[in-house]
Design a protein around this nucleic acid. Structure first.
Lengths: 178, 178
DNA sequence: CGCACTTCATGCACCGAGTGCAAGTTGCAC
DNA sequence: GTGCAACTTGCACTCGGTGCATGAAGTGCG
């Protein structure tokens, strides 16, 4: 069902594919679709259920004392690398769906909620600066993706991420996160 | 109609107020509502029609040679200052509407499109870094607002904006925008 | 085998957002 | 008055999304 939906969306674009189209093509009922996906956007942006374990491992694997900003970069590189096919597929859906350009979201909120929680437990940053840092990382990802030429593969995205993380560099994040 | 809608939303929350509620309370037809607002969210987030002139003046008023990052901060301070009542009202709607917490948007896309265009014409930044800078500014605003205690007035927001702009400081933006 | 139990898909009725269109209504210029 | 433009309205319709009850498998067990 998932792949059917994504196929239709890459062919026709997000808005041009209704939920009825998807369930008809996938041979399931409309209600079943909404048992699996919270909404239509979830088809594109929600991670595999077991991705939670993946990003938890990535977060847990960051060496103690590493600057928060560096940790965020590495986790994003690791996560997008491990889910490269999904990222590429997603990119194709976006290219076919100009109406999604206003949607600044590349990975699910659950991911960022986990990141924030992890960062809060790890650093002594005040809440404002903590949110600024995490949201800045999110912005780097969300800004890099539209500039990403999918033909360059996931390495191309990682290059953009690296440049973005170097460019947007919240001050003092190394000193504070020690 | 606009004030009626905002009043209902601050009382009951965004989702708990249907468009039918609004038009019934305002004494207009449902269709007329959608002649004035593109969608329900526009009631909360869209600017006054003549705000466009305001932000255009703010952008045009930045001294030549000023670092892009500083310009963005000053424009945001100026804009939120000039529309202080709206910002405060908006904050109250958000507080009454937990369902809006996932919506990272404080001012309309039109505003940011204008900012981006202005910045593109003004600086020699490559597209990626340009988007990173503008989006970082947007993130600072969107992050500051949830941390804003509306009782502190618009000055409280400006304090958070200042701290945010100081903390998130895209590298070299002074040198490049010269 | 028959029985209970859970799990999952399904149909159905329903709500709310949003659009297209055609028919009015108002007001203004001539 | 007539004509015209701008605005409002009602209506029918599409689509996304939810609550609920039903019913079909599949599983463990005596």
């Amino acid at each position: 069902m998932h792949s059917t939906a994504l196929r239709l969306m890459t062919e026709r674009g997000f808005d041009a594919v209704s939920v009825d189209d998807i369930v008809a093509a996938a041979g399931v009922s409309r209600r079943t679709f909404f048992n699996y996906f919270a909404d239509k956007e979830s088809v594109v942006f929600d991670p595999d259920p077991d991705d939670a374990a993946l990003w938890a491992a990535l977060l847990a694997g960051r060496p103690p004392g590493e600057p928060l900003w560096s940790s965020l970069r590495e986790v994003l590189v690791g996560y997008t690398g491990a889910t490269a096919e999904r990222m590429l597929l997603q990119r194709r859906v976006r290219l076919a769906s100009p109406e999604l350009s206003g949607c600044s979201r590349e990975v699910a909120d659950r991911f960022w909620a986990a990141v924030r929680e992890w960062a809060a437990a790890r650093t002594g940053l005040d809440p404002l600066r903590l949110d600024l840092t995490v949201n800045a990382a999110r912005t780097v990802l969300n800004t890099a993706c539209p500039h990403w030429d999918a033909d360059s593969g996931i390495a191309g995205l990682h290059e953009l991420l690296g440049a973005g993380f170097d460019f947007v560099h919240p001050s003092h994040s190394e000193r504070i996160s020690s």
